[in-house]
């Protein structure tokens, strides 16, 4: 990488790191340090191919998806069985629900959370998620479904979400 290429790389990182960091943060379940590691690793991989990468942002995003996939394949994942802590007041506010949701999302397995991030944050079609994860569209559907079911278990407040959010917004 010569000086001009390095400058372009630094400009790219400077301009796009907020959006890329948001994605890394979600993929790692809200772990700031793990997110920094994930993005740094993907950027390092991008830097090695900087001359040939045509769409750097798409490349970095894909590198993060793939890295997350390879991480969850290499390690045995742990799920948390205990229900989330409940406040004493049953009239859950919007703020409390958001906290409960974040806690529930962070307790999903890496694979479950990544599928939800790819489907609902990145808005990727099922076929593209299947291609990234190296599985069938049917598996993407079943993982999405089971991840949402798991969220309902971890956050019982979600069972009647329309009521809760209606009150929160009023």
């Amino acid at each position: 990488m010569d000086a001009a290429e390095e400058r372009r790389f630094r400009d790219f990182v400077s301009a796009r790191s907020p959006a890329l960091m948001r994605l890394a943060y979600l993929l790692t379940g809200g772990d700031q340090h793990a997110a920094e590691d994930l993005l740094q690793s993907a950027l390092a991989r991008t830097a090695t191919r900087w001359r040939t990468v045509e769409e750097p942002e798409a490349y970095v995003r894909r590198a993060m998806y793939r890295q997350q996939v390879s991480w969850w394949r290499r390690r045995r994942e742990t799920t948390f069985a205990e229900p989330p802590e409940r406040g004493e007041d049953d009239a859950t506010s919007g703020v409390e629900l958001r906290i409960v949701m974040r806690r529930a999302l962070s307790r999903l397995t890496s694979r479950q959370r990544s599928v939800l991030v790819l489907r609902y944050y990145e808005d990727l079609p099922e076929a593209e998620v299947a291609a990234i994860l190296g599985c069938s569209v049917g598996t993407v559907r079943s993982t999405t479904h089971r991840s949402l079911a798991r969220l309902r278990t971890l956050a019982p407040e979600l069972r009647e979400p329309h009521v809760i959010f209606g009150e929160a917004k009023a």
Binding site: M21, R22, Y25, Q32, L43, M101, L105, L148, L151, P161
Partner: peptide, 30 residues
Amino acid sequence: MTIDEIVRQTLREWSGDARVPADLADRALG
């Protein structure tokens, strides 16, 4: 609001908590 809308909204809001390190490019190149 359905659960997928809640998930979508939560992810968008939650992602805003991410802090961007100032030295990412240096770290990547290093």
